[in-house]
């Protein structure tokens, strides 16, 4: 079963990285999870200042907004999609991920399965 681990950054330090997490922690975790053979895909996102929001109103008018967005409380910093037998295993990986520390959090969501897909 596939789960997406959505990594929400906690407090950011001055350079925009998650507080309390060293790059080495991420490298160690990434190596471990890749070697376990459970990763389907994963990406780390660039800083929120580089983000742009697009909305299309009912009348078809397009609004483009520059990030960061004032109302955004949790900043999505990246994700892993993993294929593991059940939720407990997915939660285990989420707890190992450095993104769950230092005020950050990880949402673990099953990837929807469609019949015949």
């Amino acid at each position: 079963m596939k789960y997406m681990l959505l990594i929400n950054a906690g407090e950011l330090d001055l350079s925009g990285g998650a507080a309390g997490c060293e790059p080495e922690d991420w490298m160690r975790f990434d190596k471990e999870i890749q070697e376990a053979g459970v990763v389907v895909s994963s990406e780390s996102l660039a800083d929120l200042v580089t983000s742009t929001r697009v909305q299309v109103a009912n009348d078809g008018r397009r609004t483009v907004t520059d990030g960061p967005f004032a109302e955004t409380r949790e900043v999505l910093g990246g994700y892993y999609v993993i294929d593991v037998p059940d939720l407990d295993v997915a939660l285990e990986w989420a707890a190992k991920c450095p993104g769950s520390r230092g005020g950050g959090s990880i949402d673990v969501r099953p990837v929807a399965e469609f019949p015949g897909a």
Binding site: M1, P85, D88, P110
Partner: peptide, 10 residues
């Protein structure tokens, strides 16, 4: 069922 919480003893 959908998030597949397992039936197992930790």
């Amino acid at each position: 069922k959908d998030a597949r919480i397992p039936f197992r003893v930790p």
